[in-house]
Amino acid sequence: MIKRAILALVLTAPLGAFAAPASAQDAHSTPVPPKQSWSFAGPLGKYQPAQLQRGFKIYKEVCSSCHSLSQVSFRSLADAGGPGYSPAQAAAVAAEYKIKDISDAGEPIERAGRPADRFPAPFANEKAAAAANGGVAPPDLSVMAKARTYERGFPWFLVDIFTQFQEQGPDYISALLKGYEDAPKDFQLPSGGNYNKYFAGHSIAMPKPLSDGQVTYDDGSPATLDQYSKDITAFLMWTAEPHLMARKRLGLQVMFFLLVLSGLLYFTKKKIWTQVKLHPEQLQARPPTEYKH
């Protein structure tokens, strides 16, 4: 039956070829983001704390002027499997931010941030954000790395299950940050739009956010757009999936355990069934009335 199932899959494949021109045309207008190598990809993937810290610096100095990060709390900067700050450093970062609160007297106040607070949004609300940005509110970045993808197409979407390729989001974000170009002559760029090779429709409201030399790194990493786009993307992957390292580590343990248990169960089952083969007379005798028909 397995063979037949494979055959059925093969029979369906021509459908993919049949309809392929349509998707190829899509690919022409918006190129597929180039595949990057990410430290957090694959079954043993890990975040690099230094890279996350560089990415956080970019968020703080560039992105945060327009984009919120409202799901992320300051304390998580010190969590295991993250950027590797100490709790004191996370508290110091929190203290740099002003958090809206209400005083004991009931007056609206701004106080210094605490580790338990989340990153404050740059605008008071979504409407204010939209009004300040030409009518479109800059999206929250907390889960952005999981909220963007691109079509993989047949047969890659099946191959991805086995190769564990999950990084469409990061690939897209880093490509987008590097995808700003002059619009082709025949392209009508709407007013307020910026031409980006990888953005669907090519007209993106966000102006080119990062350029070479814009952010000064403390650790001597190259201050290039290429490096920036990788680092901020890795940071956004961490904000979207803060427990990725714990997940992959536990996954390895669970897979190993299941492999052992299924092996034991296979031999147990084989042993039990051998008894049927060797001693069919041991099968429980039952009166004929127990059988239907």
Binding site: L264, F267, T268
Partner: peptide, 9 residues
């Protein structure tokens, strides 16, 4: 075998 399987489970 049975004891090992039962224990692991």
């Amino acid at each position: 075998l049975y004891i090992a399987t039962g224990t692991v489970a």
